[in-house]
Computed example of a mutant assay.
Amino acid sequence: MDSSTSSTSSTSPTHLAGTVPAALPDLWDRLTGTQPAPDLWVVLATLAAALVLVVPHGPWRIARNAITIAHEGGHGLVALLTGRTLTGIRLHSDTSGLTVSRGKPYGLGMILTAAAGYTAPSLLGLGGAALLAAGRITLLLWAATALLLAMLVMIRNAYGALTVVLTGGTFLLVSWLAGPQVQAAFAYAGVWFLLLGGVRPAFELQAKRARGGAGDSDADQLSRLTHVPAGLWLFLFHAVSLSSLAGGGRWLLGL
């Protein structure tokens, strides 16, 4: 019995030591390797699916939550990058959100933080399109999961935490369990949605301002910070979103 016990204890660590290092290169290769682009019909089908979520009012009311995550995440990320202290992010069921940071209430850092919200979904979509054009499908899915997990730490309300957990969990499950074709379709659909969904909020804001509403919007805050008319900031939001859609769309379609 002593000999049997000794044999078991000596072989078990060897087994673990052999499998863990062996798994790490496989994991790294999976993360940094390239995957083949899907067929054109899949790319077009995911484009159609994204349009169904963005254009009709009904689906958009629900899907817009994902754009709000990107919007508020953009505020939060740029606040940190410019040296501000991020204190919390809230996401609400009416698809509005609030990002609170501490620092000087003026200056370049505050301007960049305020400008990041409406531009973030489109710029994230453009970056995602670049990764997909390079065949980095798995890297895109894991990077999105990591960003959502990092954002979860700063969420300060239950609804916000739920939406980020559900979104991040979906990305994690697809990237870990789904096959290459499903991963590719999901990634392309997500990037199309960011590119298309990044366009609509600026038009919605423009319509609200035309009716005399949204007096404390990002464009109005930027106007007060810079003494540049809010309409010019709206033009910037439009320019970024439409340019990102044009450029990202070309990459996704392989043009």
Rank of each mutant, 00 (worst) to 15 (best):
G254N: 03
L126G: 01
L195W: 00
D216K: 07
D218A: 03
L132Y: 02
L91P: 03
G213H: 15
V20R: 10
L47H: 08
T34L: 09
A144W: 10
A134E: 15
V78H: 01
T85V: 13
E204G: 08
I137G: 05
G74A: 05
E204N: 08
Y159S: 00
T87Y: 14
V20C: 09
R209L: 15
Y188N: 03
A50T: 02
V153W: 11
G179S: 03
I62T: 15
T119H: 11
A17L: 14
L177H: 12
P180E: 00
P25W: 06
S4A: 15
T119R: 11
L27E: 11
L81N: 06
R136C: 04
P180S: 02
F171T: 09
A23Q: 10
A116P: 06
A37L: 09
T8C: 13
L147T: 12
L173T: 10
A37M: 08
M110E: 15
L131H: 01
S12D: 12
G197E: 01
A17I: 13
G168M: 02
W192V: 01
T170N: 10
A133N: 05
E72V: 08
A144E: 08
I69T: 00
L177F: 12
V20S: 08
R61T: 04
S101Q: 06
G73F: 08
G109R: 02
G198N: 01
H71R: 01
S4M: 14
T34M: 11
L162R: 10
